[in-house]
Amino acid sequence: MALPIMAVLMFFLVLPIVMIVTVSFWQATEFSIIPAFDFENYEFLFGSNVTYRVFFNTFKYAFITWVFTLSIGFTVAYFLAFHIRSLTWQIVLFLLCTIPFWTSNIIRMISWIPFLGRNGIANSTLISWGVIDEPLDWLLFSDFAVILAFVHLYTLFMVVPIFNTMMRIDKSLIEAARDAGASGTQILWSVIIPLTKPGIMIGTIFVVTLVMGDFITVRFMSGSQSANVGRLISNDIALLAYPSASATAVVLLLTVLIVIGIMLRFVDIRKEL
């Protein structure tokens, strides 16, 4: 029964990874790539300052996005799970939060243009309020725009798992805490947050991997002015430098897997479904 899935993943996941690892040792000329076994691509990668800057940037995006998606996602999930009293309304509001997930990411990025542009809504509003005199240039095509888009696209990856674990918290635990004299903050801090940890971890895994592997949001929202590892790879691909793209890809994959490996120590995914 599991054979077809195994076959698909073998051919379209395992084999491509093997291929990338292999090609990362190959050599490239201007027109073609040649099978070889040397570490030139890796030497170049680790010898270049750009690499470290770009990796640092990638972690920076991941961390800032994580902070925002977690605080927004947790608050939203908390509101839905503990303040909405009827199940129907919970489902309706929850669906409202998830619907954008099923629409196009690219269009959701494009839709920030009229808001953030030089003559966009944000700038004209701020000017008309007298907060600024000149339109702000850093709203669109900047790190700010990149992070904003990430938070916009990926917050629901936090909301869904956190809401899911919160819904399974036994309400009598909270009552017990209240009867024992705990204040609202104490209940939140010592009862709800510890019990929500698995959901937080799953959301974190989603957000961190999506941000670390992204290249299109960074390219589009920064107006090609910032770079992360994904863009390094896609630039190499555009230059047909597949071996060096592969070497970067291998390092990125290892980095992501190590990060996930660390996080999986804190949560048993199969138990949480």
Partner: peptide, 30 residues
């Protein structure tokens, strides 16, 4: 439980977390 179920489970998780551009690149190369 079946033979390889553990491996398959980890493959599924890998499939979920692997940066999409790697799949694109790898399949394209193959």
């Amino acid at each position: 439980k079946f033979k390889g179920s553990g491996i398959l489970f980890y493959l599924i998780i890998t499939s979920l977390v692997i940066p999409s551009i790697l799949v694109s690149l790898g399949v394209g190369l193959i």
